[in-house]
Design a protein around this nucleic acid. Structure first.
Length: 419
RNA sequence: GGAGGGGUAGUCAAGAGGUCUAAGACAACGGUUUGCUAAACCGUCGAUGGGUUCAUAGCUCAUCCGCGGGUUCAAAUCCCGCCCCCUCCGCCA
């Protein structure tokens, strides 16, 4: 949620920056309603002041045993006018809320403008592996090694659900434990939250109302299966006011995530590339506005460290305005290379949402004793999601004899060196 | 799922239609004094929105007593619906 004051103060400037994300965005309607809102508030508050004064006077009269029926009759008229204005005001407020809830965050000035392809590669680690043989894709490897079973998963649940079996399941659990422990040792407080969230939680994180079709919804209980732990963690301190010295507050969560992924899939998104259910380690930070951009950079570094320890080649990219999630001001992705597809795929997306989610969740901090509360900045980043990470390990670590080399840091947990 | 009890500002807590303009205490902050891991005394001390303003300073008006409605000239207080917590009962992979 953007600050309506910001829109009022600099409508042209804000609109121009929002248009770099979506050229169809117009602020005129919101600003018109906002003006209407202000004038209604002005009149209703004057009437309420009148009513309050009158009601007190009635109290005095009754206590003194005087007749107040004339005053009561006139106050009745005042109350009726208040009720009229109030119903118009709530119509306008809900209209403003609706329009505001659809607006995206203002992109940070350092974000490249334009389409997805305008993203900027910031750095990389390692290089694309060279194979002296024809590489298999992770799907073929998974089938051959009997560690992935999409056919039976489809029977149990449906298409695009994963099933890890045998060493595949061991590898998955080892990755989760390795990443969870890594971040916990790095100062992130470990947390396993509920995997389902209510509609308010998903609104705060900004998955709702825009992406309702992409989330699994349990209608009977009005609960949503989390599409990312971000949608839960953004609510961890809803309605709270931090002391300044508590920030930055860092969390690492493990959740299984669920996405309907409504829409079409391409041939290059088979196997583990895009699925309805996956495990993810998610980092989340609450920070002051002064801290947040340094914390974003550190968040990316903390996620990169996972891939370095696993010895996987990756690159880091700064996303362009049109590729940002609604709540994000700036997003940096980490992408791993899948040799069978000769393509890079996102395994981590690290974003600074500034005060966009904090405003919805009313999460603030007090910048010193006696100072007024300010909204915190929230940051989230995968650290990382497992499916593409596993695909990367299977494809990048295949050897001429067909075996898969398990990264050293996982070997002890799995009890094997090769698959 | 059922019965009962509860939800008041950072914490505890009074208040049961009309100076509630939400008491009081604790914590916190500022000061005075004594003099030293501290006490006593004085003062300040919730949030949001509107107006005024350079001001996120003051002043002022409005709103907020779990959330949402309703009754009334007037609601923390009465009525209806919902949420959460506690105790007990039922059901149960």
């Amino acid at each position: 949620m953007l600050d309506i004051h910001r829109l009022r103060e600099d409508p042209m400037g804000i609109e121009k920056r929002l248009k770099t994300r979506d050229s169809s965005i117009e602020l005129e309607e919101i600003l018109t309603f906002d003006q209407k809102r202000l004038s209604l508030i002005h009149s209703i508050e004057q009437l309420k002041a009148e009513r309050n004064r009158g009601a007190q006077e009635v109290g005095r009269c009754k206590k003194a045993g005087e007749d107040a029926s004339e005053l009561i009759a006139s106050l009745s008229g005042v109350s009726n006018r208040i009720a009229e204005i109030d119903s118009e005001l709530s119509r306008i407020l809900s209209r403003i809320d609706h329009l505001m809830s659809l607006l995206p965050n203002v992109p940070h000035p350092t974000v490249p403008i334009g389409v997805k392809e305008n993203k900027v590669t910031l750095r990389s680690f390692g290089k694309q592996p060279q194979f002296g043989f024809k590489v298999k894709d992770h799907l073929a490897i998974g089938e051959e090694k009997k560690i992935l079973d999409f056919r039976r998963a489809a029977m149990i649940a449906g298409t695009r659900f994963p099933m890890y079996i045998g060493l595949g399941a061991r590898l998955e659990m080892a990755l989760i434990q390795f990443m969870f422990a890594h971040h916990a040792e790095n100062g992130y407080t470990p947390v396993i939250p509920p995997f389902l969230g209510n509609s308010e939680s998903l609104y705060v994180s900004s998955q709702l109302p825009k992406f309702a079709d992409d989330i699994y919804h349990c209608e009977k209980d009005n609960l949503y299966l989390n599409p990312t732990a971000e949608s839960l963690l953004a609510n961890l301190h809803r309605g709270e006011i931090f002391d300044e010295d508590e920030l930055p507050k860092k969390y690492v969560a493990y959740t299984t995530c669920f996405r309907r992924e409504a829409g079409t899939y391409g041939r290059d998104e088979r196997g583990l590339i895009r699925i309805h259910q996956f495990n993810k380690i998610e980092m989340f930070k609450f920070a002051t506005p002064e801290q947040s951009y340094a914390e974003l950079d550190q968040l990316v570094v903390d996620a990169e460290e996972i891939l370095r320890k696993l010895g996987i080649h990756y690159r880091v990219a700064l996303l362009a305005t049109q590729d940002l999630a609604q709540q994000s001001s700036k997003t940096i992705d980490i992408e791993v290379y899948l040799p069978a597809q000769e393509r890079y795929y996102e395994v981590s997306s690290c974003s600074n949402c500034e005060d966009f989610q904090a405003r919805r969740g009313n999460t603030r901090y007090r910048p010193g004793t006696g100072k007024k509360p300010r909204y915190v900045h929230t940051l989230n980043g995968s650290g990382v999601a497992t499916p593409r990470l596993m695909a990367a390990i299977l494809e990048n670590n295949q050897m001429p004899d067909g075996r898969i080399h398990i990264p050293e840091v996982l070997q002890e947990m799995i009890g094997e060196e090769f698959i």
